[in-house]
Design a protein around this nucleic acid. Sequence first.
RNA 1: GGGCGAAUAGCUCAGCGGAAGAGCGUCGCCUUUACACGGCGGUGGUCGCAGGUUCGAACCCUGCUUCGCCUACCA
Length: 949
Amino acid sequence: MTTTTALSKQYDPSEVEPRWFRFWNENGFFHADETSPTVPYSITLPPPNVTGSLHMGHALGSTLQDILIRWKRMQGFNAMWMPGTDHASIAVHVLIEKDLKRRENKTRFDLGRDEFMKRAWAWKERSGNRIIEQEKLMGFSLDWARERFTMDEKSNRAVQEAFVRLHEEGLIFRAKRMINWDYASQTVVSDLEVDTVEENGSLWELKYPLADGSGEIIVATTRPETMLGDTAVAVHPSDERYKHLHGKEVLLPLTDRRIPIVAVELIRDGKPWPDPAFGSGAVKVTPAHDPNDYDASQAVGLPILQVIDKDGKLMAPAPAKYVGMSVDDARKAVVEDLEAGGFLGVVKPYKVPRGRSQRSGVVIEPMLMEQWFVKAAPLAEKAIAAVEAGKTKFVPELHVKTFMHWMTNIQDWCISRQLWWGHRIPAWYCQGCQDIVVARAAPTGPCGKCGGALVQDEDILDTWFSSALWPFSTLGWPDKPRELNTFYPNNVLVTGPDIIFFWVARMMMFGLHFMGKVPFRTVYLTAIVTDEDGKKMSKTKGNVIDPLDVVYGATLETLLQRVDVEKPPGDHDSIKKAIRKSFGKGIPPMGSDALRFALAILNNGSHIRLSVERVETYRNFINKLWNASRFALMNLDGYDPERFESQVASSGVAGRASLGMPERWILSRLQAACAEVDAALEAFQFSKAANAIYHFIYDELCDWYIELAKPHLYQGPELEQDPAKANRRHVVQGVLASALETTLRLLHPFAPYVTEEIWQKLPKPPQLPGSLMITVFPRADASWVDAGAEAEMQLVQNIAVSCRMLRATYNVPPTQRIEVEIRVASDAVRAQVEKYLEMIERAAKIHAKVGDRGGAPLPGAAKAVVSAEVEVVMPLGGLIDVGAEKARIKKDIAKAEKEIATIEKKLENPDFIAKAKEGVVDEQRTRLTDEQTRRQRLVDALETLGAAQ
RNA sequence: GGGCGAAUAGCUCAGCGGAAGAGCGUCGCCUUUACACGGCGGUGGUCGCAGGUUCGAACCCUGCUUCGCCUACCA
């Protein structure tokens, strides 16, 4: 016997959630044992940035990962989900440097490297774990005991080892190449960290006089200031206009230099460069500050003159007048001076693509600098082959194209950064002979070649270098511990499609190179979360929905105040206006489960347009489940799970015979739901799985089963006199309790908290484990499919719905148990209807009797045609509005006739009869007969009404 | 410029070759002993446009239009 505990009328997540996270964690349910003999299933969480807090993208990705890992854990896999955080070097720099500037008006260079690192670590210790705490609040079942950081000791070792090995293999090299320079952060940034936007600029025509005085040549530029660093003018070799000028020189205006006119031919994006069709066909060449120009200089051997320095200011050999000017100032001055000298041609407005640093926002300067690079092509080759061979699959598959496109056009990866927060490059330079030593440990003595002093490279590695190692560095690589063997490769990686290049591609390359195996078998790419208008969420727009605000709720005032406290860039008034528009009534507390379920069910297609209202729908759903459970718990007094188990659940066909039709029906539907959820999850169709559960709970369990169970449960003292009824009650209790228990298991990966809370209170057989999260995930069992029960239930539902429709149409109050006649066309149907008459009466809140379809018309009655064999007649006396009733029936007739016409047309077509697939023709014939009967019934009803008038 | 995707009910989206669906909204009715974060019922669609393939097209193909998102070193 179990005592039931009353639940509150409304589910209160704030009371429930904290208890269960602690419980799961303290019992070690999150931890996977690498020595376990069970089949492993592993996922590595893309480590969030330590500077960040949990945003909707994280909430979505982590929710989906948690669904997978909880599902697999319940299926008996040795499920391991690896947590950790990423050091995010440049993001941390920006943050700390900003703070330094504000508080002490200092730069990192004023502070010095050691002191800066001390502060960075202190900051990381203070706020770096915020996101971890937030992940815990969402109930994510990460293996917290394994938590890692990309700059912890083990990761440092992995990074060093990887660097040294790649260097030994010739896959890391140092070279002078064109890179992207962010002068505000004083570092190289990767191509991927540069946002190219079209800005309004100008196209200036410059006239360069020929040195022999025989005329001039016109070039065009969007950056006139760079002309100070020109070392040639390039023309296409086949351009007839310039053939006579090849090898001649021009006098470079504003300087005292003479530069040659050279014939060059490069191919850029399949087009010739210089392109004779563009402008004058002649191009000024500034090798130090333009990638095309640099390539041209290499092709024909031109000198390279750097005229812009690391601070974005002009430098010698630019004429002294311009030295020290910013690029923008220099541009103005140069244009002015060119005009004064008569060197300026036509100037027209022009859209200029401009690269800006994602981090600092400043214009990126292409610069020629000595840097460390990873030779990417050979690594990419392996990654491409692995994907082609199906060793790693992309879901949805269309993302393969993005991946392949990038991989096949891959550039060498510049990995050195002129920052401090990160992994210092393990390379030492000899001050004497310039020899470079790359080593796992700092060299102890002087240079082995010349005895000179060795000094370590000042630079650090790109953050993504350590991220690329993450799937195996977290498992102990370069050592070969047990966990590496158990959990590598991961089964799946879940991330946003925006991270394919940054992370997925690089993990694939390093995973294959160092481990010889792909890092994960499947890459699942999530939707992108936007606001309800489809716009990217951003603090500067004020349309951000913070996951924790959704979970715990936030008043409008809190949201507005936060703008002042956090000071996002931009116009605060318009940010606040946007917040008022989206969150006018604040955000009510929804709980983690509601948010998680919403994200899972909305994760179809490429975007999730999220709004408070949409999460509210699923909060209501969670509350619905809560109340269904509340109902069950209130009616399970005297229920003995073990007795039910032995009588029904485990006694096979015999036990099932003791079940009523609704019991067999709900168990049949439940098994269908289990099959659908399982199949959907196997295919990463989270939305489909969530939908199946949602509809099972609402449309089947709550709307029908619970309603039909009520009369059997609501029995009082008379049970003692009637053992049959008592037994029946017990069976219904058992089906309700066990169906609910199975439903909770199905839903648990999506909504862990509410399901655990209910499950703990539900009476259940004692052999079950102590937590829902370690029970067995429901497996579809086809033996519970009961087509007969489903068909009978369908009949009951159809009749009840027709009765409700008539009742609603005529506003018959529910308190009025109106008499309805159910007219049937055959004895077989009559028997079924009679058998389930009480159910129909209860579901439709009517009194019913069964009549003959051929019965005499009832005056003043409304009629609904349920099917070809059943119709319901509701006598309404004076209540009936004959006109409205006629209109309603006429509409139905029109519908039926339209159907009939469509089907007849099909059947009259000889080609259809001859060529249609097997069964289709018969199907259409049956449909036609049904529709024709239906129409006839409706026409009869219409005539009856006419007669009654 | 190159690539990818999307257009289905007022809104957000499923469906992807043989009967137009869901959620939300909207409109009625209902404090019915699980739930008003609720129940019951209704309304609502030439499936972007134009061709083609097919016995049959929302679904496959072609073109167009309109929106998204990546990506890019045309001076």
